[in-house]
């Protein structure tokens, strides 16, 4: 089992898809992950299962990989998912979770926006560029930069989970470059492909952060570090001014009014 623990999860699932199904039962969604380079031991460790659940999970994985092996069964079998625990975040992390909410409101509008773009004769470049501005300024500069420049610096940045987050941020930026190119050229298919690509990516990314990464980081932080991160994030926010988040919140409200009416028509 030791050497399996140190293998990359994608490699394990490729060789034995049953492992992916077992992990999924425990709410550990490694199968759709784009990278899959986390080690099995980290994947299990990071989800903070209770010890019995973890023992059962490891037992089932070992059984799936080595069906012929005589693996001692753990005493308590808790195959079922436990009731979802309410996550309590430290104040600076809670603020980042709240910022995700505004980003998710834009993601929710993307299908309607794409439909509107497809249905109009000329591509509404102004609208696309405004959405791009929200993504680049609010989601990326205002939000992702606090993650990259402050929060992630407090944990082992070389950890696979953090690397996956960096990669997601970069992939998101690449999608947005493509959206801009599509808007410049009036290429509806390109806009559609990459807005949807961004939406799928960020939906998963935010879920991973809210449910896995942030609680994992919070568990490692000392009280002093929480205070420091809180102060640094406040300073970062102050450097862009109070008006910036308000402006983008107004933008989302207007967008919702426009497109929810569009849907109602």
């Amino acid at each position: 089992m030791e050497n399996v623990l140190n293998k990359e999860i994608k490699e394990i699932i490729d060789a034995c898809p049953e492992v992916g199904r077992i992990l999924d039962e425990y709410g550990i969604g490694c199968v759709p992950c784009s990278v899959g380079s986390c080690l099995l031991k980290d994947v299990v460790g990071i989800h903070n299962l209770d010890p019995e659940q973890e023992a059962t999970l490891m037992y089932r994985i070992e059984k799936a990989i080595y069906p012929g092996r005589n693996v001692p069964k753990p005493v308590v079998d808790k195959t079922k998912k436990s009731a979802p625990k309410k996550i309590s975040y430290s104040p600076p992390v809670k603020k980042l979770v709240e910022e995700h909410v505004l980003i998710k409101r834009l993601l929710a509008l993307i299908p309607t926006i794409v439909e509107y773009i497809e249905g109009s004769i000329k591509v509404d470049k102004d609208l696309i560029l405004k959405c791009v501005d929200f993504i680049r300024t609010y989601a990326d500069k205002y939000h992702h930069m606090k993650e990259e420049d402050i929060l992630f610096k407090y944990v082992d940045e070389k950890a696979e989970v953090i690397q996956v987050m960096y990669k997601d941020h970069d992939t998101g930026r690449a999608h947005i470059r493509q959206v801009v190119e599509g808007a410049e050229k009036g290429n509806k298919a390109q806009i559609k492909e990459h807005l949807f690509g961004y939406r799928d990516l960020l939906t998963q990314h935010i879920k991973k952060e809210d449910e896995i990464l942030y609680p994992w980081i919070d568990r490692q932080l000392s009280t002093t570090q929480v205070g420091e991160i809180f102060r640094k994030c406040n300073e970062a926010d102050a450097s862009v001014g109070d008006e910036l988040p308000r402006k983008y919140e107004r933008f989302i409200v207007e967008l919702e009014e426009k497109f929810l009416q569009e849907v109602a028509k």
Partner: peptide
């Protein structure tokens, strides 16, 4: 207080 800090 006008400054904000984490309280546990």
């Amino acid at each position: 207080a006008s400054r904000k800090i984490p309280v546990k």
